[in-house]
Design a protein around this nucleic acid. Structure first.
Length: 593
RNA sequence: UGGGGAAUAGUGUAAUGGUAGCACAAAUGACUCUGGAUCAUUUAGUCAAGGUUCGAAUCCUUGUUCCCCAGCCA
């Protein structure tokens, strides 16, 4: 899976100043280094990636996975994969399966530590009872609307619930009955008794449990009360011995609660377990970092779900989606994702990353690893008039100039060829080096050819070219040393295999899809041209039978990847990313004047 | 207008009291059997104003801007 390489890419300090240790490290790793030096966790590092299985993972999650797994790998620690499945209303097995596949594909290794928060429900229940006994939690009968009303506002303190001072025995009994299913959804909650005037709204008697008569994807109907995130999450980390609980910035306001709940359980507990409440439980440190934003796409699960549900894309793994499965289908490699994660770093402020950074990481990896092959996307038939009818030659082509070990292959050449339509212009502008009437170019690995005649249809479209080849230039070199300005890719028409090629562009037309007129939604910025299907393409015969997700570079065009829609009869490719295209830039500036 | 965070070239990110550096992007040139790749050069930055200091992106003060929080979601 190339994990060693991935690790190498992701590891160590960004500046290569490894001898300095903490210099140049992101702030999370600096904390880890300090903890290692101080022995805070006994030299132990344990991280986790805790997705809720209510959607597919996206590249923002990849950033988190690379951070968490990267830290564990670099410091000799452990990395857990844990499903935070505390809300049966939104969670599904399909999402669990896709998440496992995606994390594994990225190369993060959780060994045998695949956990589910729902497996901790019994322990959490017992701790909740303990909090009631300690007078720190109570059963509340307020309705949802009332809870909101009593909570107060950002600037005004809340009011205490009239149920706040129930006796411990009454609370114990009611909570047990909640758990036994005696009350309908929403009738009662268990709340922490903290401070209704707290300036942090999260501390105004937060709800620990709600009643939900819902079948859980894993626990079935065993429970009808479900823990809230704030109550559950710290304990999940605690039970797994997590040292650094890394999450995104919006949970910063929740950290006081994370700490409060663990402290509340630990109150009265001792290090050696003596005393009525037993032994103290582990108290991890929560650290928050900024989530990733990418230009020209959206990253929230809600919006991605909308794109899928309303058919704006073909599914979670549509190659235009920023999901891990979408990027994989598009042709991204784990190595590219890792180097991207390293490049963007980790910080505490929101930033929007330019897609050119992502594409740079992609090209950097694909250039090293992708076998080259010739393909023609928009074919233009070319007849070599002086090439013997019926003759076929097998010419040597290099598989990967960046990797001599990749070897060579044979490419058939014949009298009838396909060239790329855009490689010919009848009236070439300045700086157009490719084929034009009377002009000589090289066909890669083959011959020099000169264009002698242009055939057009009734509408004046160029439909066929006639050329002469120079037999002395076989292989692509002229014995007399004459030069040509261009080298073109080509295919022997009788040998070429038909293929469908899907070209992709940004899903949205604006860097910030949220930038919409008053009253409109982000979908108003969807790019109508994000997908272009070319049905009549051709590829080299050497790419006859290939597995889905196999990557190639189509010479001079870009990186392409076999789509799972591909069959033996019909090859289908996705364009992962184009090659850098100097001519396109020149053309653009020429058009702009 | 309560509380919690954060501001470094167009973008991302280093510098942790001592020459503001790197990558991407952009521009120019070299080389090239991919107008690819590679190499070289250039443009461009500390939110603002004060203060401390021999010396401030870094420390202090004041201000500005941005993000998060009023789900029985996570």
């Amino acid at each position: 899976m190339g994990i060693d390489k991935d690790r190498e890419i992701s590891g160590k300090s960004p500046n290569g100043s490894e001898e300095r240790g903490e210099r140049g490290l992101d702030f999370v790793r600096q904390i880890v280094v300090e903890d290692m030096q101080s022995g805070r966790w006994g030299g132990r590092v344990a991280t986790r990636f805790p997705p809720e299985p209510n959607g597919y993972l996206h590249i923002g999650h990849a950033k988190s996975i690379c951070l968490n797994y990267g830290i564990a790998a670099e410091f000799g620690g452990q990395f857990n994969l844990r499903f935070d499945d505390t809300n049966p209303e939104k969670e599904e097995q399909e999402y669990v399966d896709s998440i496992i596949e995606d994390v594994r594909w990225l190369g993060a290794d959780w060994d045998d530590r695949l956990f589910y928060a729902s497996d901790y429900f019994q322990q959490m229940y017992e701790w909740a009872v303990e909090l009631i006994r300690k007078g720190k939690a109570y059963v509340c009968d307020l309705t949802g609307d009332q809870v909101r009303e009593y909570r107060g506002t950002l600037t005004q303190p809340g009011r205490e619930s009239p149920y706040r001072n129930r006796t411990i025995d009454e609370n114990l009994e009611l909570f047990a009955r909640m758990c036994q299913g005696e009350f309908p959804d929403g009738a009662k909650t268990l709340r922490a008794k903290i401070d209704m005037a707290h300036p942090n709204l999260n501390m105004r008697d937060p709800i620990m449990y709600r009643i939900l008569h819902e079948t859980h994807h894993r626990q079935g109907d065993q429970w009808c009360i479900y823990p809230m995130y704030d109550w559950a999450h710290g304990f999940e980390d605690s039970l797994e011995g997590i040292t650094h609980s890394i999450c995104t910035l919006e949970f910063e306001n929740h950290r006081p609660l994370y700490d409060w709940f663990i402290d509340a359980v630990n109150e009265g507990r001792t290090d050696d377990g003596s005393g009525p409440w037993g032994k103290k439980i582990h108290h991890p440190q929560q650290i928050e970092f900024a989530r990733l934003s990418l230009a020209y796409t959206v990253m929230s699960k809600r919006k991605l779900l909308k794109l899928v549900k309303e058919g704006f894309v073909r599914g979670w793994d549509d190659p235009r989606m920023p999901t891990i499965s979408g990027l994989r289908r598009r042709g991204y490699s784990p190595a590219a994702m890792w180097s991207f994660a390293k490049l963007i770093g980790v910080n505490k402020f929101n930033s929007t990353v330019d897609i050119t950074l992502l594409e740079h990481c992609l090209r950097e990896d694909l250039n090293q690893t992708s076998p080259r092959v010739m393909a023609v996307l928009r074919p233009l038939k070319v007849i070599i008039d002086n090439y013997p009818q019926g003759q076929v030659e097998e010419l040597d082509a290099v598989n990967n100039p960046e990797d001599p070990a990749a070897g060579t292959r044979k490419v058939p050449f014949s009298r009838e060829l396909y060239l790329e339509q855009e490689d010919f212009m009848e009236n070439p502008p300045k700086k157009f080096f490719r084929l034009a009437p009377g002009r000589e170019v090289r066909l890669r690995y083959a011959y020099f050819i000169t264009c002698t005649d242009v055939i057009k249809d009734a509408q004046g479209n160029v439909v066929e070219l006639h050329c002469l080849y120079d037999p002395a230039t076989r292989g692509g070199d002229a014995p007399d040393g004459r030069k040509v300005k261009a080298t073109l890719h080509w295919l022997s028409a009788p040998h070429a295999r038909p293929a469908e090629v899907r070209l992709y562009d940004n899903l949205f037309t604006k860097p910030d899809p949220e930038d919409v007129p008053e009253g409109q939604e982000f979908t108003a910025n969807l790019n109508p041209n994000s997908l272009e299907v070319l049905a009549d393409c051709y590829v080299e015969p050497s790419v006859a039978e290939v597995a889905p997700l196999t990557r190639y570079q189509f010479e001079r065009l870009g990186y392409f990847c076999v789509d799972p829609d591909s069959t033996a009869d019909k090859l289908v490719f996705n364009r992962t990313v184009t090659l850098k295209d100097t001519w396109a830039k020149i053309q653009q500036s020429q058009q702009q004047g």
